[in-house]
Simulated assay, not measured.
Amino acid sequence: MDGRRRPPSSERPNAPAASAASSADDRDRSGGAGEGDRLGWADVGKGVFIVLVVLHHTVSKHYEVVTPDAWDRLVAAWAGVTLALKPLRMPLFFLLSGLFATRAVHRSWGEVLRPRVVRPGYLYALWLAILAVVFTHARELPMNRTRDAGEYLADLLFATTGLWYLYATVVYFVLVRATRSLDARLVVALGALLATTSWVWPIEAYNRGSVLIHFVYFAAGARLPGLVRRLGEWRGTWQVALLVAAYVGLGAVLLASEAPRGAATLLLSLIAVPVGVRAIVAAVAAWPRAEQVTASLGRRTLPIYVLHIPVLALLHHLVGELPPVPTVPVLAPLALAAYPVLAALVVTAACLLVHAAAVRTPLRWLFELPDDGPRRGN
């Protein structure tokens, strides 16, 4: 590659990891309604946002590193896109994850302990160890990682790596389940208070800040499912336009003021989440044929979540460097501009293929408890 190799935006970034939900979601997808009253747009939302998580990591961990300095503006544009989506990507994903946990919160511990706590906890510990091994070889990819047994044990107690979503779903569910006798509004308010502490402690450069921030969204989805449903039924077109304008304006102010990232995420998400729900519902209505594909992804987030970083590391190794000089003046910039999207889709598809092959072999313990039968994937 001509010119220096660009360092990543942060060696231990605050960027949220991709996310996955427990397969117990399949039994709770009605979000508190009757079994036949399924929120299809919520499955679509999870499908869209898991791809956005892969796109985010493709840009921040791969594209920024392998793209020559001659394309600085293009890289900056993509970095700006993923930054703008930050207050929407994980907050809305956790809101939907909480929504799918609504019924489980009110079941007995005997019914929910294994699917909601033991299984994701097992997968978190397992994949934390697997990725630690992967990163002893794939050292070029700039990711939070465990480098020794001490860090592994520390991450079991309080996550810092890209697997923090699995850790958070266990902790969040236990907290919401334990506080189910309290008023839902109080639980959500306490979640918001917890989120404000994320920029008080010196952990904002790690995913631990994200763990503190996002409980409020999971709690809102699990304890206030009616509110989420009303967001899905909202049809205010001009209000959406005003919210988008407010999002852009507030984002510019927060960026200029160098506000803590946790504070900016929390404030902007109050605008981004309702806009995101409205956009998903509108997209489902406008492109019904695409609903089936994206909803299918939304029900298979786990293999994408745990596999996309190793697959991205392999891609990073294979690509090495992108061309420093355009060979075709028009096509080269277009190809480089489209590369993050194409790479993210390739990584996503590869994850699903690996998972589909693994669950048909004894290797299905990589995605399920060893004595569980095969599931659909999330």
Rank of each mutant, 00 (worst) to 15 (best):
P370N: 07
G377N: 04
L52N: 10
A358K: 01
V240W: 13
V75W: 04
A272P: 02
L302K: 00
T265R: 00
G251H: 15
P8F: 07
Y172F: 14
L342G: 06
L92D: 02
V75T: 04
F218T: 02
H355M: 08
P274G: 11
T294G: 06
T265W: 01
A184F: 10
L318W: 06
V277N: 01
A79I: 12
A220V: 05
A344R: 04
L175W: 03
L88N: 05
P333I: 01
I203H: 10
L363N: 07
G32E: 08
L156R: 07
T265Y: 00
R278C: 14
P333W: 13
P340F: 08
S19P: 10
A149E: 10
P13Y: 10
P202C: 10
L153W: 12
M90V: 05
A313L: 06
G47F: 08
W71F: 07
P13V: 10
V240Y: 12
A33F: 05
I280R: 06
G249R: 13
L186S: 09
L242C: 00
A101M: 09
A357V: 15
V134S: 02
R376I: 05
L182N: 14
V330G: 15
P115I: 02
V54F: 02
V347K: 07
L254Q: 10
A77D: 14
A295W: 03
A246R: 15
A337K: 04
F100V: 12
A129W: 13
L92A: 03
P288M: 14
Y124N: 09
D148F: 01
H106T: 13
L96N: 06
V112Q: 05
R119W: 11
G320W: 11
P225N: 15
W199F: 00
L190N: 13
H56I: 03
T102H: 09
Y339G: 00
A154H: 14
W164V: 06
S269L: 09
F49S: 12
G121L: 04
V134T: 08
W78D: 00
V188P: 00
P370D: 11
L166A: 03
R229I: 09
P87E: 11
P142I: 06
P13K: 05
Q292D: 03
L175D: 10
F135H: 02
H317P: 12
R6K: 05
Y152K: 11
G298N: 00
L175Q: 11
A358W: 02
L212T: 10
H106M: 09
R4P: 14
W41V: 13
E258D: 09
L334R: 05
R139N: 15
N378K: 07
I309Y: 03
R89M: 06
A220Q: 11
A125T: 02
T179E: 04
V174Q: 01
W127Y: 01
A178N: 09
G298M: 04
V330D: 15
A205F: 08
D183L: 12
S198Q: 10
P303F: 05
Y247F: 15
P91H: 04
L302N: 00
A21T: 15
V281M: 08
R29W: 07
V306M: 02
L95N: 12
V319Y: 09
R364Y: 01
A184H: 00
R139E: 13
M1A: 14
G150W: 12
V319S: 08
G249K: 10
A246Y: 13
L242T: 02
A357E: 10
S22K: 03
A17H: 13
L331H: 02
P324Y: 08
